[in-house]
Simulated assay, not measured.
Amino acid sequence: MNNKHLVLQTDFGLVDGAVSAMLGVAYTVAPEVTISNLTHEIEPYNINDASYRLLQTVAYWPAKTVFVSVVDPGVGSSRRSVVAKTTAGQYIVTPDNGSLSHVAKFVGLESVKEINEEVDRLPHSEKSHTFHGRDVYVYNGAMIADNESYYDNLSKEVSVDSVKTLEITEPELRDGVIHGVIDILDVRFGSLWTNIPLELVEEAGIQTGDKISVQIYHDDIKKYDNQLLFGHSFADVAVGETVGYINSLIRLGIAINQQNFSQTYNIGTGNDWLIQIKKVKGE
């Protein structure tokens, strides 16, 4: 059974040949590798979303799987190119621009090697400076997927602590109110995924079937204020009604059954989208 896995993530989309070129390089370098796509629909330049999608996915792949994540607004600049090995044994090849933030915090990094962009790259690509996804990242990713010792032979190990990380806000419970942020969307369906873990929901005394108060703020302006059911899933409420639930990352989500919450209420994501949750008294 082939256990050489390469998983690709970019903000390139599929409207041109960029992703196909990356696939071609990978198959040329490692003909026996199995290539899968995490997503190529990251919002252009959105490093935070790239970081979160890696967290959403990496832990479900076996050790030795190699991820290539290319959301690289600084391509051609002085930012480093790196390979990180997680504490669970997967590898992530990526620009060192914050895309390792969530994996570093919630999974852990065992070691990190810097890629020499002048040497460790697709042969004869030295004159190209704007497509490192093809020339640097997928090339190195395929080399590691084909033979794990390639990682060991990368000459420059760097400190795990030196990896660039984005700010990740911690949720907290104060006076019965959970304060968190909206990390990201369940994109296709528009549900909100918060940074509030199930443990904090339980600590606030909220149980399945309770009514919860939900307030959402952006730049100190209240954007949403409602009471809704905290249920198991979307089907606990009628079509068009709102519900709180625990998502696949065991964190609080907010949704409208069979409708798009984000579009309906014009709600965004990031550390400046604050959410407050509390149990409705008497429920």
Rank of each mutant, 00 (worst) to 15 (best):
S36H: 12
N37R: 06
N37G: 09
T39V: 09
H40C: 07
I42Y: 00
I42W: 03
I42L: 04
E43S: 13
E43I: 13
P44Y: 08
P44E: 10
Y45K: 05
N46Y: 11
N46M: 07
N46S: 11
N46A: 09
N46D: 15
N48G: 12
N48M: 12
D49Y: 09
D49V: 11
D49C: 08
A50L: 01
S51I: 03
S51D: 06
R53H: 14
L54N: 06
L54C: 11
L54A: 12
L54K: 09
L55Q: 00
L55M: 05
Q56D: 15
T57A: 15
V58E: 03
V58C: 01
V58M: 06
A59R: 11
A59Q: 14
A59N: 11
A59C: 10
Y60W: 12
Y60K: 11
Y60E: 12
W61A: 13
W61L: 14
W61K: 10
W61T: 14
P62W: 07
K64L: 10
K64D: 14
V66Y: 02
V66T: 10
V66R: 06
F67E: 12
F67P: 14
V68E: 01
S69E: 08
S69P: 05
S69N: 13
S69F: 01
V70P: 00
V70I: 12
V71A: 07
V71W: 08
D72L: 06
D72F: 05
D72E: 08
D72R: 05
P73M: 02
G74F: 03
G74N: 02
V75A: 03
V75N: 04
G76Q: 04
S77F: 08
S77P: 09
S78M: 04
S78I: 01
S78L: 02
S78Q: 03
R79Q: 03
R79M: 02
R79T: 01
R80L: 13
R80C: 07
S81R: 01
S81A: 15
V82I: 15
V82L: 12
V83F: 04
A84M: 04
K85R: 14
T86R: 05
T87K: 14
T87I: 15
T87F: 00
T87H: 01
A88F: 10
A88P: 00
G89R: 04
G89A: 08
Q90K: 08
Q90I: 10
Q90N: 13
